[in-house]
Design a binder for these strands. Sequence first.
DNA 1: CTGAAAGCGCTAACAA
DNA 2: TTGTTAGCGCTTTCAG
Lengths: 346, 346
Amino acid sequence: MPKRSSAATLTDIALQAQVHKTTASRALDPARRHMVSPEVVRRVEAAARALNYRVNRAASALRTGRSGTVGVLLPDITNPVFPPILRGIEQALAAEGFFVLVADTGNEQSPDQAADRMLAQRVEGLIIATSSLHDPLVERLGQDQVKVVLVNRRDEAGSMPAVVSDDMLGMKLAVDHLAAIGHRRIAHLSGPLGLSTGALRKAGFERAMAAHGLTPAGFAECAAYSCEAGEAGTRHLLRSGASFTAIAAANDLIALGSIQALQGEGLRVPQDVSVIGHNDMPLVDRVSPPLTTVRILHYEMGFRAARLLLDSLRGVPGTTSTVVLRPELVVRASSAPPPVGKAERA
Amino acid sequence: MPKRSSAATLTDIALQAQVHKTTASRALDPARRHMVSPEVVRRVEAAARALNYRVNRAASALRTGRSGTVGVLLPDITNPVFPPILRGIEQALAAEGFFVLVADTGNEQSPDQAADRMLAQRVEGLIIATSSLHDPLVERLGQDQVKVVLVNRRDEAGSMPAVVSDDMLGMKLAVDHLAAIGHRRIAHLSGPLGLSTGALRKAGFERAMAAHGLTPAGFAECAAYSCEAGEAGTRHLLRSGASFTAIAAANDLIALGSIQALQGEGLRVPQDVSVIGHNDMPLVDRVSPPLTTVRILHYEMGFRAARLLLDSLRGVPGTTSTVVLRPELVVRASSAPPPVGKAERA
DNA sequence: CTGAAAGCGCTAACAA
DNA sequence: TTGTTAGCGCTTTCAG
């Protein structure tokens, strides 16, 4: 009779199955099961089921150095960009028996603290969605040989493996669309330029404009990827005296804030000004007007980041490379040809 | 010279600080530090810093039986209801040095599998947002003495501690509002009745209607909390020949789907039919028309659930009780007085 | 206040 | 194919 007080251990099932606990351990591990006779495997499995045995990962982690966990650092899980990324990560990891430790570093804790606590937990690697272009944390982790994959953002040096969307291409799609329907005076509302998404989308905007022989009709950096920052940026743009018939925003929330601010000034979207977002967040197809935007494959991004990390943990070569996913344009009602006679004016 | 190959251990810092590793362990634990002379604490801390020491939680988990982790089961992290709940959980746990292990059980894995894997990881408790009214998993976990807190949903028996919003009250707020602006013929689109939120909101709707001396003007059960299910439910309602001037939906997504379906039939919201949602999800203030809804304190719900679990882990008494939070009505443009002459008709 | 000893549950290495 | 031995790094006795 095994003690019912606490969980069954290998010793318990070894006793019950009349084998040594080492044998029991082997019989229960798919990777080592072949070393054990079928009959013994059967007995051990029966005993394990009977005693409701579950391997103690704390013990095996201590012994093997592998915890079966991966840490994920997110800036703000309530930002709609991140749930599908997290979901992709979780699905890829769960398929391999790994678990996700999440830390939302938006509020109380710093990414550094969170990363340290995760390393104490002996996570086998880290997936980071919080990194800025020059991130001391990422640098430090790299020096400490911690396995790291960046997701959605990349570092300036490009020395860390990352899975990102092609941010330059995304803005090119936006600008190409606006130019194709007749816009010549296009302004840009960027995200924080300290983030790769902010900097690259701005660069992509400028390059795409140049390719059309256009010069930016206005620019403002938004301090955050939020509606509020989008409103503020737009007011700044309007006050600067810039004249434009379209705004390419670096993010859907910024675009929504921008629409709000434009409407507050009596401007109609898209009749007076077209606005295009970025990300294709949930519900932006139902706002008024439905938002034209650039769709990013967030789930895929998370999934690939996790796969990359898993491969790297297993020593698969070539896992230091960066994966770049293709975004696509989604045209809805917030973009339309510029008002007649205005496109060429000013 | 400590070996630089792998992470520093207590033995390493004990050596460096010229004390026994037991003493080093005590010096680094705030709860046992007082047993050690200040001078030794200083030396040990210096050594720890110098060697970049981080306690190995796998080892301490094995020794103490406490892993410092809590598992969270979510049905679908991309459903906007759950990110703020997860955030609340994470913040409350992080403040106490705990980590969250998340599993999204929507896709590949079943909640049962996920829970088993989590128990193998020796999570100290489980926070479950996936439970149905009669949930075999929850029952089993209860029997196995696993510490469990339900969040957002509760079990039929009410035997498990849970943190939920007052779903009956939420529907009462919705019905009271519609009645106050003149509606008499109100229909209900419920969520899945196998979930406490679906069943309780339906019950709340019916009770509130009765309190006003009204009988439900129509009803359809939506198979999921999604726009698609809301559309389907609404079409069902329309085809059933029900006559109504308002719909109280059990969820914002259902409400948005409903609006879509109504508009598809040439009905205007709110001029012909008022629609009211539930949850106050992000961006529903910017859809067309802005959605009147019942706001639920999701972050608070997650935070309180985590606190409840932590207290329970520490043996604080009274942690088996269920916490019920108060929702509040948010009036926007999707609700308005019924069309003149229609309120009393049919 | 500090040290010695023991052992949590598991698996790698070696032996039979 | 199975068993023996040892030890991962920590913390909890118990002794001094």
